[in-house]
């Protein structure tokens, strides 16, 4: 049952690492402008679900459809192009390139998509301003605080104005004040650009920034929208 008007849907996803299944028939759907929290205990397959949805990994079986196109059938190059152009990513840590300055890091997706350096960095700077970290543009990730670095990462995820943002524990390494600020900036920006956000988290207060949550347990995703 694919809800009408969905931007990204998955049905019957199976994925195993070795003998243990990480996903065991998971379903998922999200439409444009929606923020969906993916919750569940550690090791339940949250991240695996996100990676399948984003086309980073291919499910063993089941289908992922993005904007009417079968994502799970696409070759790697096509999926990479999609990730470059239409998706954005925020992770918990280790995502900024240590040698590049903050503005260069934020501009990286645009540069990967083929934009000229000047234009890419101009746009990246706009996002840094919006995320309140324009003052550290020339510093390297090693020289800024965790919260600042995470905002740079969010700026980088948003800089291509993606249609889907995948955030995997985006506040996992931050204190609650910084974490909530980052979540607020992220969801505000996403709503402004009508981007869908797939938010993997185990924190309820972070999940509270979503419109709806999906609980992954034992490799199965349960959409809680209809449960109430």
């Amino acid at each position: 049952m694919i809800p009408a008007g969905s931007l990204l849907t998955a049905t019957g996803l199976h994925k195993s690492y070795g003998p243990t299944p990480a996903l065991d028939g998971a379903d998922f759907s999200i439409h444009a402008g929606e923020v969906v929290a993916v919750m569940g205990p550690s090791g339940s397959g949250k991240s695996t679900l996100l990676q399948c949805l984003a086309g980073i990994i291919r499910p063993d079986s089941g289908t992922v459809t993005y904007d009417g196109r079968p994502l799970s059938e696409m070759p790697d190059a096509e999926r990479s192009a999609l990730r470059r152009g239409e998706f954005g990513f925020v992770f918990q840590f280790g995502q900024l390139v240590p040698e590049l300055t903050c503005v260069e890091n934020a501009a990286l997706p645009l540069r990967l998509a083929g934009l000229k350096r000047k234009e890419a960095e101009r746009r990246a700077l706009e996002w840094l301003e919006r995320l309140e970290v324009a003052d550290i543009r020339g510093k390297r990730p090693g020289e800024v605080s965790g919260g600042q670095g995470q905002r740079v990462a969010v700026a980088r995820a948003l800089v291509t104005t993606p249609r889907v943002i995948f955030a995997d524990e985006p506040t996992g390494a931050l204190d609650s004040l910084n974490g909530e600020r980052v979540m607020q900036l992220l969801t505000d920006a996403a709503r402004d650009t009508r981007a869908a956000v797939v938010l993997v988290t185990h924190e309820a207060r972070v999940a509270a920034y979503s419109d709806r949550e999906v609980v992954v347990r034992d490799g199965k995703a349960r959409d809680m929208a209809g449960a109430v």
């Binding site: 929290a37 309820a204 207060r205 999940a207 509270a208 920034y209 979503s210 419109d211 949550e213 609980v215 347990r217 349960r222 809680m224 449960a227 109430v228």
Partner: peptide, 20 residues
């Protein structure tokens, strides 16, 4: 009982969303 807990979680989250 699992469903019971999930439903309760949803209800909690609904309120948390409102508060947020």
């Amino acid at each position: 009982a699992g469903t019971l807990l999930d439903v309760q979680r949803s209800e909690h989250l609904r309120l948390m969303r409102e508060l947020t």
